[in-house]
Design a protein around this nucleic acid. Structure first.
Lengths: 327, 327
DNA sequence: CTGAAAGCGCTAACAG
DNA sequence: CTGTTAGCGCTTTCAG
């Protein structure tokens, strides 16, 4: 099933077949011939062989999206789905790659794929960037040279969410706020960003900067952190959790101590995982529309592929608080 | 940075370069020359261009793994990581594709990649299988013709887990068991499999088959289901939940009704999501070692690629109950 | 309007 | 031991 087969079947040349199959412009081919080719291709189940096409044209229609390996929100599928849809409309094919601590994985993948572009939600390690460059990858998002502060999506994944959490708590009348961070090193830059967003909101409201405490992901450990907070001179009355998991840990720790939210301590999470609504009390959290975000990012990527220089800072699309009972 | 560049740099021919770079057997090339080529390739940062290599050799080193879109366990990354590692050792490169309800996605991906193999955890739709065949995909796992009962991993993802849940409850002395299924149609075949596993365990123990109830993923809905169970003539004393999310929903529903586990009703989940340990009471659940499973599956795939006909039924690798307090 | 021909980067017979 | 050469499937000038 090659284009030669279609040519033989129709009694035309491979060139003509190629013309109609790609409807090449400036090529006046009679409807009859065109029809004949299309029909034969369909009948034979012809599919162009991607490697040959890529070799010839010098450009691949593949785009790689690196997925984070941190605890996945169940909406990751939506993100990929919508991003893939937008890219498909533009003639690209999205493939995903789940991030690994094993170094060089992305680099090897790019060598094997020679994709047109690679994007992800965090900066790539220099080693991988180098490999991508060698693999002729055209566009990399976030751009390797970008500073860590203002790069792709910082506003959405990090500072924007932290800010929104703190603003909600402040609106509820809280003035002493803490930040609960995971002790997982993989997300240290993200958690720092969120805490920074919360700090900004506090500063804007004339409040002191929130204390930052790492919270172990077990009940005893979380209870320990809560006790420490309450024993401190300026005991916080509310806490921004890095995500719903640490929020759930906090709630469980409080329960063990006989405390409850929001009375003893208000808790707000982030991600709106399915378990959030089933917590005791149901967890107030920040949700973001992953699908929207995926589409948004994909469009930004397409613009970059078209050579448009652009501002990569994203407006926090569809980010909103889901108010339940814990804050 | 093509092999021509390396040839020019070393003053050799492209053929010679190719020979040493792929260390082609039956080709006696002096160490000196060999060294010269390797050194030049490294210095120039030469990376073979995959599409050309694939076109020429007729075989790609890509393997596609389709990831489910149902609520992801946080261990999906481990699965992919270990599977990728095993495949990489054999010279293959793993790329992932997140499943979408949008039809034909996998098919289009395969057309764009021409991978050596495709594997996933559920049978592929016939439409995609057809596209894969056209895209020259050599091996498909699970094989399209396999029956739904005994296909790839059924024992691990479905019946095996359900069986283990029921066996745990039976060991605790329960004799009237229910199955709580999600009402999400995307997982209906999986949930049926798990319920079947639970039913087997009950049958083996001489107990009546468990009732199956769909559980809505909200507190009121879950509470309604619990009430209905308790009002029924043979009220169950324990329930196998399809996964931790529905287990959490059940626990929340019980809490609303003033009931608690395991006293009023024992609940066992599946997946051991991070939130499970923070539930009230902490959730007893079934965990499986995703990394092991990934490696196991990858090895099975490699054997199939080597043409070995084989039994695809997997032993439940690393599946075990995590006993907390809810059952 | 259609066909012949060149060539993308790479590999593998086959000569030298 | 190394170089020449053909060709993978496809697109795209350039002639007819």
């Amino acid at each position: 099933m090659t284009s030669t087969d279609v040519a033989r079947e129709t009694g035309l040349s491979r060139a003509t077949v190629s013309f109609v199959l790609n409807d090449t412009p400036n090529q006046s081919i009679p409807q009859a011939t065109r029809q004949r080719v299309l029909e034969a291709a369909a009948r034979l189940g012809y599919t162009p062989y991607a490697p040959a096409r890529t070799l010839r044209s010098g450009r691949s229609d593949l785009i790689v999206c690196e997925l984070p390996d941190w605890p996945q929100s169940p909406t990751m599928a939506e993100f990929v789905d919508r991003a893939g849809e937008v890219l498909a409309e533009a003639g690209y094919t999205l493939v995903t790659h789940v991030h690994t601590d094993r170094p060089g994985g992305l680099g090897r993948l790019c060598a094997a794929l020679a994709p047109a572009a690679v994007f992800g939600m965090r900066p790539f390690p220099p080693q991988d960037v180098e490999a991508m460059r060698r693999a002729r990858v055209g566009v990399i998002l976030p751009p390797p040279q970008a500073g860590s502060g203002d790069d792709l999506g910082a506003s959405v994944w990090t500072t924007g969410i932290g800010r929104m959490q703190a603003e909600h708590l402040i609106a509820k009348g809280h003035t002493r706020i803490a930040c609960a961070l995971p002790d997982d090193p993989r997300v240290s830059d993200l958690s720092a960003g969120r805490a920074a967003g919360a700090a900004q909101a506090c500063a804007d409201a004339g409040l002191p900067a929130p204390a930052r405490s790492p919270v172990p992901l077990d009940i005893d450990g979380a209870a320990g952190v809560v006790s420490a907070w309450r024993a401190s001179p300026d005991a916080p009355t509310a806490v921004c959790a890095y995500n719903d998991e640490v929020a759930l840990a906090l709630l469980a720790g409080m329960r063990r101590l006989g405390l409850s939210a929001p009375g003893d301590l208000a808790v707000i999470g982030a991600d709106d995982i399915p378990a959030a609504r089933f917590a005791a009390p149901p967890l107030t959290t920040i949700a973001l529309d992953s699908g929207d975000l995926g589409a948004h990012l994909a469009r930004a990527l397409l613009r970059t592929l078209d050579g448009e220089e652009q501002d990569l800072t994203l407006a926090p699309h569809g980010v909103h608080v889901v108010e339940r009972e814990s804050a």
